[in-house]
Design a protein around this nucleic acid. Structure first.
Lengths: 236, 236
DNA sequence: TTAAAATCAAACCGTTCAGTTCAAATATTT
DNA sequence: AAATATTTGAACTGAACGGTTTGATTTTAA
């Protein structure tokens, strides 16, 4: 009964979804999960204590252990829920159709804003830190994050190829998409992961996006796309 | 009895440096520092215990605390020493002069091999994980790693600009160098940080290097396509 | 109303942790 | 050899941890 409860929580992701199914029943379990997520994200697995979680949840310790087998299970549940939320936010990225420069700019901007948010950074830090102890969580996150956004971008790049806007023959679409995100994340993520107290300004994000799009289109743009000065015939 | 598990991660640059200053005096302190580094890299700060360190060092607990004030101080000392070692290995990268494609290829290859090594990955994981608790270590590492290699590459890019091999007017040299490393690290580092048990083959590294260099030169090469250079007379 | 289920606060358990103490043993210096 | 410093092992402290138990109280459902 206890295990089943926890499993249900893991498959349904957000509070909203669960509230609709069982209006007030799993209220406590949800409070615990939500509190646990916060504590784990700010302290990591080892430094987080079940007392912190219990206190943050406003719940007795017995209740915590009535819904989750132990600290590890609670951690896994919290991280997996966060992965689903993360993937959802990535897949919710919308952009108006247009030329590839515009699409990449919109996509890049949205993605960078997600990925450089305090929550996402704390999340990534914990995943990276605990990847050895919880290997499946690393994979789960990779699927939910990079893999998810990559499929979206790959699709857009495919359209651009058909439209003759870009030429990715040298690398293939998937690789090109990955390169775009490497350009996009590159400096920002490195800095933010290692300097948790530093805040990133919207201007800085704009600049990173512009640089990434511009560079990407210089490398892969056919002709007119992103300020390519040198017009090389596409048969090189 | 079985102390050698995490010890193998370590090598001994700091040892040399410190031995020269105080030949046999700080023998024990060094053993402690070396063991501590191994333990911290494999377990992180919180999960590492002073007993593990003491045992791995083959030293009594009193000796540990005779040389280091507490666990935090030991951690800082271990990480800072590792930063120095890391920077040294980055600055030791050598490459034969040649066209920019060749230089970038050699540089990129050496850097990627360092950065994707087990030790460097474990090191980065710990830095990222503990950046909130030890903010200065994040900065120290950033200086020792990214900043260090960036200065090397920027210099080479400057030469290439003078030689007319590349055109970085759009972004500037520093940014271009950063973009090169973003392309270089991009996928590999993301995968490796989150999948600690996965091994990277030399072939995979070669491929990443080739892709990065190729893409970079498509974006910034004056009249190149993937490394072929049209020579322009050097002005000085 | 009543019985079952869930939750509570708090004490409690066994373990582990960082760090200390100390007398004995070992090196090092003089 | 004597004096001094360093290291050792092992026991110990006090706090914190994960997790359990308990008995009282509240909530839910019939």
């Amino acid at each position: 009964m206890r295990a089943g409860c926890a499993l249900m929580l893991m498959t349904n992701n957000t509070e909203v979804a669960l509230r609709e199914i069982s209006p007030e029943l799993n209220d406590k379990a949800l409070k615990v999960l939500r509190a646990a997520t916060g504590i784990f994200l700010t302290h990591g697995f080892s430094a987080a204590t079940t007392d912190m979680i219990q206190q943050a949840a406003g719940v007795s310790k017995a209740t915590v252990y009535a819904h989750f087998a132990n600290k590890e299970a609670l951690f896994v549940a919290a991280i997996e829920a966060q992965c689903e939320k993360f993937e959802a936010s990535v897949r919710a990225i919308r952009f108006e159709p247009g030329n590839i420069a515009k699409v990449l700019r919109e996509l890049g901007h949205a993605y960078l804003n997600i990925v450089l948010s305090e929550t996402a950074l704390a999340f990534m830090r914990v995943i990276i830190a605990e990847a050895s102890r919880f290997p499946q969580l690393g994979s789960t996150f990779y699927q939910a994050g990079p893999k998810a956004i990559l499929s979206v971008v790959s699709e857009q790049l495919a359209h651009a190829v058909e439209a003759g806007e870009i030429d990715v023959q040298a690398t293939g679409i998937e690789t090109a998409a990955m390169l775009f995100f490497s350009l996009l994340r590159g400096e920002g993520q490195l800095i933010c992961l290692m300097h948790p107290e530093s805040r990133v300004s919207p201007v800085q994000i704009d600049h990173w996006v512009e640089t990434a799009v511009h560079t990407f289109l210089r490398a892969f743009g056919s002709e007119t796309s992103g300020g390519r000065v040198l017009h090389v015939a596409s048969l090189d």
